[in-house]
Amino acid sequence: MSDSHYERDGSGGLPAWDDDGFDHYDLEQWIKAAGSYVRAGDQLRPQVIDEVKQRAARRSAWKPVVQFTSWGLSAALVWSLLVYAIVLLVPRGLTASDIFSRAEKRAVAAGVSLDWALSEVFSEARFPGKSHGGANQWKTANHRQGLTDE
């Protein structure tokens, strides 16, 4: 059914009922006129306005809290990422257990005492570029012969 079927131009006033010619156009005109018979309740408008304003007030009251929370969460997230990046990217120094295990290995390999090996490992850790080989060898040799002051 096309819309144009119902687009007959009305006479302006309401059509009269006609038992013989009860066509849809008349019916439509009557129904159309009945549309303004019902109205919205008087309380609808104030209730809607009141509720909308209350919600707006609640929203504005919560706004600083929400903003503060979101800023706090964002800051915590950024801080966590920063800490994680630092831990991940910055080279980690030797721990006590690392030094001790290295010293143990060196003491066994070079046949020196653990405290001397510890001293060497500490020197290497503090001055990684420097060669400690000659001095160490000399010290190690003297240590073996018992010529050091110790």
């Binding site: 549309g35 019902v38 109205r39 919205a40 309740g41 609808l44 408008r45 809607v48 306005i49 909308v52 304003k53 919600r55 707006a56």
Partner: peptide, 19 residues
């Protein structure tokens, strides 16, 4: 304008929406 303009919409549409 925010919620201050709701009354205009109510006046315009409430009757038809209720219907």
């Amino acid at each position: 304008r925010g919620e201050d303009a709701i009354s205009g919409l109510i006046d315009l549409t409430s009757q038809r929406l209720v219907r």
